[in-house]
C-alpha cells in the first residue's frame, strides 16, 4: 500500500515477467496519468475473462486509469461479472461475500485510518446492480447512513449477468429477460435518490461512452470520500450477452440509453464543493468573484 510495493525485490527484477517489469517501470504509480495518455503507459489492469466488447469492461478499465493514487488504492468487489476484471489489476482487491462489499469496505476504511492516520488510502467498491441494490442493499444503505468514507460504484447492467439473466431491482419495468420471461413487474429502484437521502456527499450517473467524463467523476468521488463522506457513482455498463446487443453496437446502445434514461447527473454537497476547490484547486467550485459594481 505505497510506492514501496511496486518496486522489484533487489536481485529479482530480471526474473520477473515482462508485464510485471513494464508495470513497475512504466505503470501509473506515483505519476499523474490521465485518460488522454492511454496507449503510452502500462495500465494496471491485466488480461481477464470478461466477454469481448463488454461495456462493463471498458468502464472498469477507465475507472482504473482514473484513480488519483493507484498505489494507495484498494478495490472491494463481490460475486458478479465485474470482479473477473477488477481482481486482475496490480492493486490489492478484497473479495466480499455476495452483498457484503460495503460492510467489508467500512471495516477496511476504518482500519486503514487507524493504521495510517490522515495519509489517504482510497477504498473503492465496484459491484453489480444485483450485488448492491438487492442482496447487498442493507449493507450499502447502512454504510451511507453511517457516513463511511469510501467510494461505492454500481456497475449497472440492469440484470444478473453472471448467472444468466435474472431481473434485479435495477432492471426496468416490463423488461423481459431469459429468467424473467413475463417481464419485470415493478419500476427500477431509485438508488440515486436513496444515496442522497442517506447523506452521500457526491452522487453521479455516468455512461462509459464518454471516457473523459468517467475520469472526471471517478476522481471527484475518490477525493471527496477521503475527507467529506460517502460517494456513489452509478454507471450504465450494458450486458451485451443478456440484452443481445451486437458487440459492435455497444457504444451506440450506450448513447441511446444515455439519451433515454441515463442522462449525466451530478450532485455535489456544499461541503464537498468547498473541499474540492480548497484542497484540489477545482475551479468550477471556487467562489465566483463578485461582479464589478456598475458605474453610476
Amino acid at each position: 500500500m505505497s510506492l514501496d510495493y511496486v518496486k522489484f525485490t533487489p536481485g529479482f527484477d530480471r526474473f520477473m515477467p515482462k508485464e510485471y517489469r513494464d508495470m513497475v517501470e512504466h505503470g501509473p504509480f506515483g505519476k499523474k496519468t490521465t485518460v488522454s495518455q492511454v496507449g503510452s503507459f502500462k495500465e494496471i489492469l491485466e488480461e481477464h475473462p470478461m466477454c469481448a466488447g463488454c461495456a462493463m469492461t471498458l468502464f472498469i478499465r477507465l475507472a482504473m486509469i482514473s484513480f488519483p493514487n493507484p498505489e494507495d488504492t484498494i478495490t472491494v468487489g463481490t460475486a458478479g461479472c465485474g470482479r473477473l476484471a477488477i481482481s486482475q489489476a496490480a492493486i490489492p482487491f478484497v473479495y466480499g461475500n455476495y452483498g457484503d462489499q460495503n460492510g467489508v469496505a467500512s471495516g477496511l476504511t476504518r482500519g486503514l485510518r487507524l493504521r495510517f492516520g490522515d495519509k489517504p488510502k482510497d477504498v473503492v467498491v465496484m459491484a453489480g446492480d444485483g450485488g448492491m441494490a438487492d442482496i447487498g442493499f442493507a449493507q450499502t444503505l447502512h454504510s451511507w447512513f453511517r457516513k463511511e468514507k469510501f467510494t461505492t460504484i454500481m456497475l449497472d447492467n440492469e440484470v444478473y449477468g453472471n448467472t444468466g439473466g435474472q431481473e434485479s431491482g435495477m432492471t426496468n419495468r416490463n423488461q423481459v429477460l431469459k429468467m424473467a420471461p413475463l417481464g419485470k413487474k415493478f419500476e427500477k429502484m431509485d438508488m440515486l435518490g436513496m444515496a442522497k437521502v442517506a447523506g452521500c456527499a457526491y452522487v453521479a450517473t455516468v455512461v462509459p461512452n464518454n471516457p473523459r467524463r468517467v475520469e472526471n467523476v471517478i476522481k471527484k468521488a475518490v477525493l471527496i470520500a477521503r475527507e467529506i463522506g460517502p460517494t456513489y457513482i452509478q454507471a450504465y455498463t450494458s450486458c451485451n450477452i443478456e440484452y443481445a446487443i451486437p458487440i459492435d453496437k455497444v457504444m451506440e446502445d450506450a448513447k441511446a440509453v444515455e439519451l433515454d434514461r441515463y442522462k449525466f447527473s451530478e450532485y455535489v454537497s456544499e461541503e464537498a464543493r468547498e473541499y474540492l476547490a480548497d484542497q484540489y484547486g477545482y475551479k468550477e467550485y471556487m467562489p465566483k468573484p463578485a461582479p464589478a459594481l456598475a458605474k453610476s
Partner: peptide
C-alpha cells in the same frame, strides 16, 4: 485522434506510437 485507444474495452491493447 487517439479515440480508439480510449474506447477499446481491453487494457494495454490499442497502444500508440508517436
Amino acid at each position: 485522434c487517439k479515440l480508439c485507444t480510449q474506447y477499446c474495452p481491453e487494457a494495454n491493447t490499442i497502444l500508440y506510437n508517436n
